[in-house]
Simulated assay, not measured.
Amino acid sequence: MSVRPFHHGNLRAVLLDQAELVLRERGIDALSLRELAREAGVSHGAPRSHFIDRNALLDALAE
């Protein structure tokens, strides 16, 4: 699964889009902030500036 490069300010949207794809294709057990960061081409800590943990990401998806 490849991700389009993002520009500053778009990481949150990229993470949400990728998380939705992972959930649809591989299920909740495959969802990981670290893996989403890798797929987005950012450091493994970068998603934490938008989501404190996986549950916060899932909450944002549910909204």
Rank of each mutant, 00 (worst) to 15 (best):
M1E: 13
M1R: 14
M1H: 13
S2Q: 12
S2P: 05
S2F: 09
S2M: 08
R4F: 00
R4E: 14
P5E: 02
H7N: 14
H7E: 14
H7G: 11
H7M: 12
H8T: 13
H8A: 12
H8Y: 08
G9F: 12
N10Y: 11
N10H: 14
N10W: 11
N10P: 00
N10C: 11
N10T: 11
L11Q: 03
R12T: 07
R12V: 02
R12Y: 03
V14L: 15
L15C: 01
L16A: 00
L16K: 06
L16F: 09
D17P: 03
D17W: 06
D17F: 03
D17N: 10
Q18K: 15
Q18R: 15
E20N: 11
E20L: 08
E20P: 05
V22C: 10
V22D: 09
L23G: 06
R24N: 11
R24F: 12
R24W: 10
R24I: 09
R24V: 10
E25I: 05
E25H: 10
R26Y: 14
R26K: 13
R26L: 14
R26I: 07
R26W: 13
G27N: 11
G27I: 13
G27M: 09
G27K: 09
I28R: 15
I28S: 09
D29G: 08
D29Y: 08
A30L: 03
A30C: 04
A30W: 00
A30Y: 01
A30R: 09
L31E: 07
L31M: 12
S32M: 02
S32R: 04
L33K: 07
L33M: 05
L33N: 01
R34N: 07
E35P: 05
E35V: 11
L36N: 01
A37R: 00
R38S: 06
R38H: 11
R38P: 00
E39N: 03
A40H: 05
A40T: 02
A40F: 00
G41I: 10
G41T: 08
V42P: 01
V42S: 02
S43K: 12
S43D: 14
H44T: 06
G45H: 02
G45R: 13
A46Q: 06
A46G: 02
A46L: 01
A46S: 14
P47T: 05
P47N: 08
P47R: 02
R48Q: 09
R48L: 15
S49L: 06
H50N: 10
H50K: 04
F51E: 05
F51A: 03
F51D: 04
F51P: 01
I52C: 06
I52T: 12
I52R: 15
D53E: 01
D53V: 07
R54C: 05
R54E: 13
R54I: 06
N55E: 15
N55C: 08
N55G: 12
A56V: 12
A56R: 15
L57R: 06
L58S: 01
D59W: 05
D59C: 01
D59F: 05
A60D: 08
A60N: 03
A60Q: 06
A60R: 13
A60S: 11
A60V: 07
L61T: 01
L61H: 09
L61D: 00
L61N: 03
L61I: 10
A62W: 14
A62G: 13
A62S: 15
E63T: 12
E63C: 09
E63D: 14
